[in-house]
Amino acid sequence: MDLFNPYNLQVITFIVLNGILAISIYITLATGQLSLGHAGFMSIGAYVASILTKQADVPLIFALLLGGLIAGVIALLIGAPTLKLHGLYLAIATLGFGEVVRVIFLNMEITNGALGITGLKSIGSTLYDWLKVTGLTGDSFGLSVLQMKAVLTLLFLLLLFGLVLFLTLRLHRSRIGRAFEAIKADETAAKAMGLPVAYYKMLAFIIGAVLAGFCGGLFAHITTTITPDDFNYHKVVEILSFAVIGGSEIVWGPLFGAFILTTLPEVLRVLAEYKMIMYGAIMVLVMAFRPHGLIGTDTFAKLFDRRRKQAARQAEEGM
């Protein structure tokens, strides 16, 4: 396998992008809320960022941030009434939200309807232009322009992913993270411990939406083309599967899910055609056999435990 093959690089880029998406669904799920509106938020971010870079020449990074921010504002608006809703209602309401957003984008002029927006300047091209300012080109690294762009895109995504993961882990180990966990485990007990449950649920919902919107912008500027159908129900299912297969107890679960589900169809070419079947089967099977997902809080503990026991046994044998 040629590592610097632009196609392979793009596959890895998508794994990283899906990693950020997985974090976004994880944070919402961390408070026990199942949102089926993540594709909707993603599309908002994607369209806002695309329109900004294409029509208004806004610098890429600002466009991406604004896309995420506006997705967050919309989450605030629809979250206020819907977050009072319990489990199933929230799921249906957010599913409905996603569909309404899709229909609106299908019919708006500025989004160019079903044809979508094409010809966006890719992240790779933007970064390459910057690089050229410093006097470096692909040749300086012995790579073609196409390869260089793909490498730059991947590096950019890795950097963002690292940053998001770093901040998520920080949040997880803070007062806020503990509040999320407590609310997920038992809302009544969380209230009795003095936690403003509604506020934290809203916060988690908004963080999830901002990240999803941000991913939408990234997605648009990697593929350079978006249509409303990129963010349909199948996208919802895809994002949800990350958390389902990996589990949503700790962030490594959804990340593992995103990695496996994005890699498998690429590695096993046969699977590509049956990608959706794979998602469906995984959802049914995992729920039946391991409803908390494959990776839980105890996974690592067990691993360490085994190692510790092994060490203890060896120590005993040594004596």
Binding site: R178, A185, D186, E249, G296, T297
Partner: peptide, 8 residues
């Protein structure tokens, strides 16, 4: 009926 945060 004890309501701890079980997985913490």
């Amino acid at each position: 009926n004890i309501r701890l945060f079980g997985h913490l």
